[in-house]
Simulated scan of single mutants.
Amino acid sequence: MAEPQALEAARWFLALFFPGVALFYIVRLTARRRRLGHSAVWHGVRGSRHWWLAKTFVVFRSVITLAMLARAFWPGLDSYLLACGFLMTSTIVFAGLIVMITGFSSAIALHFSMGRAWRSGLPAKGGVPGLITGGPFAWSRNPMFLAIQLAQFGFFLSFPSGFTLICLLVGMLVLHLQVRLEEAHLLAAHGQVYRDYCKSTARWFALGRLPFAARADTTSSIVTH
């Protein structure tokens, strides 16, 4: 495929991808609400740090979706989004798409693997959150967020620009701050068990570290987004 055609195909892929992701979560969360009898998403008390982080994430996700749709119909928008022409090659862009798809696919796989235990944010209902320490959670305390950050980096490569760089940096900041809130929440809920888990398992990922040996009586976790 010629370079201009490849970049145009990538442009349209991004225009369709983000609405597809939004539709997936709408359908998934609607189904979970019906099963649980309440929402699996909590944005916290209005005005709280948790609330601001959640709203920031929602705003940027909406802006990204609209921007990718707009640039499919108006290619000239790229200049206003500060596109980096020297990075806009089919090799870099398609590598970015692969990384982005891998990250989102991993996040969705984790989402389904958690079953009814999956939550977004700090739960106000459903009792004390359980603690998952097996599977991917034996290697990282936040595999879902790790996958999302991978997807965010892939998005930057798939459309290298000032706009996607800002989205990447803000997205990483929001996720890192959210992790701090969730750690405090889990520590309050599980005490020493969670402290032991934190000592044995990296917040993100540590090469060469043995996985956490999950206790037989542990169940599930809150996670997010």
Results as ranks from 00 to 15, higher is better:
108 I>H: 12
81 L>M: 10
118 W>Q: 07
42 W>L: 00
51 W>A: 09
37 G>W: 05
123 P>G: 01
72 A>L: 03
73 F>V: 13
44 G>Q: 12
126 G>R: 10
60 F>T: 09
110 L>H: 14
37 G>L: 01
89 T>E: 13
69 L>V: 05
66 L>G: 08
62 S>T: 13
94 F>G: 07
54 A>T: 07
122 L>M: 13
111 H>G: 00
48 S>P: 11
51 W>P: 09
140 S>E: 09
115 G>D: 12
80 Y>A: 14
94 F>C: 13
90 S>W: 07
44 G>Y: 11
124 A>V: 08
134 G>Q: 07
84 C>F: 10
38 H>V: 00
40 A>R: 07
86 F>E: 12
126 G>T: 05
120 S>K: 03
62 S>A: 13
100 M>K: 08
129 P>L: 05
49 R>G: 15
72 A>M: 04
41 V>E: 15
59 V>Q: 08
123 P>Q: 04
125 K>H: 11
62 S>W: 03
47 G>N: 13
58 V>D: 15
138 A>H: 08
53 L>Q: 10
79 S>K: 06
87 L>S: 06
59 V>G: 07
105 S>K: 00
45 V>L: 09
52 W>T: 08
64 I>G: 06
43 H>G: 14
103 G>D: 12
62 S>G: 13
82 L>S: 11
131 L>R: 07
140 S>A: 06
133 T>A: 10
126 G>N: 09
86 F>P: 02
62 S>I: 02
88 M>G: 03
68 M>G: 04
104 F>L: 02
128 V>G: 02
72 A>C: 06
35 R>P: 05
124 A>C: 03
75 P>E: 09
59 V>K: 06
119 R>P: 03
40 A>H: 11
37 G>H: 06
139 W>T: 00
40 A>P: 14
113 S>E: 10
123 P>I: 00
45 V>G: 03
56 T>I: 02
135 G>E: 10
53 L>D: 09
107 A>G: 05
75 P>D: 10
98 I>C: 14
90 S>F: 00
52 W>H: 14
115 G>F: 05
98 I>V: 15
35 R>D: 12
97 L>G: 12
132 I>D: 11
68 M>D: 03
83 A>C: 05
108 I>V: 15
47 G>Y: 11
103 G>C: 04
89 T>Y: 07
38 H>C: 03
123 P>C: 01
136 P>L: 02
125 K>R: 13
71 R>W: 05
36 L>S: 09
102 T>I: 02
109 A>P: 01
80 Y>W: 13
104 F>E: 15
105 S>E: 01
82 L>H: 11
58 V>H: 14
106 S>V: 09
72 A>E: 07
116 R>N: 11
94 F>R: 08
92 I>C: 11
72 A>W: 01
136 P>K: 01
111 H>Y: 14
102 T>R: 01
81 L>Y: 08
98 I>M: 14
127 G>T: 05
101 I>G: 02
83 A>I: 10
67 A>Q: 04
78 D>Q: 05
136 P>E: 03
99 V>T: 12
70 A>G: 07
108 I>E: 13
105 S>V: 00
108 I>L: 14
